[in-house]
Design a protein around this nucleic acid. Structure first.
Length: 448
DNA sequence: GATCCACAGGAAATTAAGGGTC
DNA sequence: GACCCTTAATTTCCTGTGGATC
């Protein structure tokens, strides 16, 4: 039996907390304005992009069956791509309705959440007909496509349906990506009444280079690039949002400037600036303060980075946690900051030999998982060559705060007991431990 | 300049799981 | 229930690579 030891004095009283909060001064007029999904009526510094998209889409106003060119939008995260396309479609729909024309239909899919071709087609289907959804697996792709075409003709009729594929670069499998985009680029040949227009949104500027040439020519008819926001542009965007979100006088001038500068440093990401503002607003709201200063922006920044790392590690699959633990243990027990992929693999194998019911992954798979940790900013690594004696390897070091890493790993009961485990090769001076896989033989055989 | 090391990493194959159809 | 489909995770196979050493 297990008891939670709770200090009576520190025991959280939810009623008291709510009562205290109710007495605190209100700082927000409308907090939602700072949210990621809020689309403002005006999008400053995006006039060129709005004009370009509007000029392509305007033919829909002449005839509901006129098909505009397919569009591809490129730009780094937080540069307003999604907001601009939604804004233009909203305005187009308003104009159609005020002119007694049918509003254009549109389906928005974030490919980051629906990463396979089949599921993207299924999501388009389910978005159009949510009452009779198709399953996310099981049907042959050609059957699903046939059903989707029938549905589009039946539900949309003689009109254009815009399909927005956001974060299209996150479809990892190149064949799946080419197949899906090829199907979509030819779908109008199968449709009898409805017409499909594809709007692709990518965070990767050279996304097109990776596409099949047939797909590229039909899908990338018009391309619009979204440049990163400059600090001054971000400042103006924040000013507008602040006046809609906060009660006047709450946010200090210095805080706005700092927030814009920090976001400008992160590739001009407006989403990051708004998230900093939202988080720092919540910090002062919970403390009952009425002035948001630079200090609160720094606090918010630390909290966001910390939360991001903790959530990422908490959600890692079991083997990836073991790999991260191996990196941490090598960092902890070695004199050097970085370890070779071979050393990490041998530590990983050693850890798994001490657990029951877990088969170790191959070094190839571990190599892919290490790269994923790298991409997430948890580790930092680079490929280096040690010549004939040492060959080519990846040198890996821990980038995230080691205290946060160990705290998160301790929460996983499978690995709690291993956070102080010393790898066999650590601290040995009688062997050259540069090249870990050689030393797999050091690992004692696991119990049967 | 050739050789060799210790991998890196791409591509195809395999496996398991979830689901649809007949 | 057999068979077919899809996806995701993983393995297997293979070629490529940078630089020290021969």
């Amino acid at each position: 039996m297990c008891f939670l030891l709770v200090d009576e004095e520190k025991k959280f009283n939810i009623d008291d907390f709510f009562n205290k909060f109710m007495k605190m001064p209100e700082i927000y007029k409308k907090r939602d304005v700072l949210g990621n999904y809020f689309i403002p009526d005006e999008l400053p510094h995006r006039d060129d992009q709005i004009r370009a998209i509007a000029q392509i889409m305007v033919c829909v106003l002449r005839s509901s069956t006129s098909l505009p060119s397919n569009i591809f939008l490129y730009g780094k995260p937080g540069t307003g791509k999604t907001a601009v396309i939604k804004h233009v479609l909203k305005k187009l729909a308003e104009k159609c309705l005020s002119s007694n024309m049918p509003a254009p239909n549109w389906v928005y899919i974030n490919c980051n959440r629906v990463s396979s071709g089949y599921r993207i087609l299924a999501n388009i289907y389910n978005d159009i007909d949510p009452e009779n959804p198709v399953s996310s697996t099981g049907l042959p792709k050609d059957v699903l496509l046939k059903r989707l075409c029938s549905l589009l003709d039946e539900k949309i009729g003689n009109a254009v349906c815009f399909i927005i594929l956001d974060e299209i670069d996150s479809i990892k499998n190149k064949t799946a990506k080419d197949n899906l985009l090829y199907i979509l680029s030819r779908i109008n040949e199968t449709l009898k009444k409805c017409k499909i227009n594809i709007i692709g949104i990518s965070n990767v500027l050279n996304f097109k280079d990776d596409l099949d040439s047939r797909v590229c020519s039909s899908l990338c008819e018009e391309e619009i690039v979204f440049p990163a926001y400059q600090a001054l542009e971000l400042y103006e965007i924040l000013k507008r949002r602040i006046s809609a979100a906060f009660i006047p006088g709450i946010v200090s001038e210095g805080a706005i400037r700092l927030c814009s500068a920090l976001a400008a440093k992160e590739n001009g990401d407006a989403r990051r600036a708004l998230s900093l503002l939202r988080r720092s607003g919540d910090i002062i709201a919970r403390r009952g303060l009425t002035k948001l200063t630079e200090a609160h922006i720094y606090m918010a920044q630390n909290q966001i980075d910390r939360d991001r790392t903790e959530i990422f590690i908490k959600d890692l699959p079991m083997h990836q946690k073991a790999i991260l633990l191996s990196i941490y243990l090598n960092f902890k027990y070695k004199q050097k900051q970085d370890s070779s992929s071979g050393e990490i693999y041998s530590t990983y194998c050693e850890l798994l030999s001490k657990t029951y019911g877990l088969n170790k992954l191959t070094s190839r798979r571990v190599s892919t998982l290490v790269k994923e940790l790298d991409l997430a900013g948890i580790t930092s690594s680079k490929v280096v060559s040690f010549g004939r004696k040492g060959g080519r390897t990846r040198m890996i070091s821990l980038k995230a705060n080691d205290e946060i890493v160990v705290k998160c790993l301790k929460k996983d009961t499978r690995w709690t007991g291993f956070v102080d485990f010393k790898p066999s090769h650590a601290g040995r001076s009688d062997i050259n431990v540069q090249f870990g896989r050689k030393y797999l033989s050091l690992i004692p055989p696991s119990d049967p």
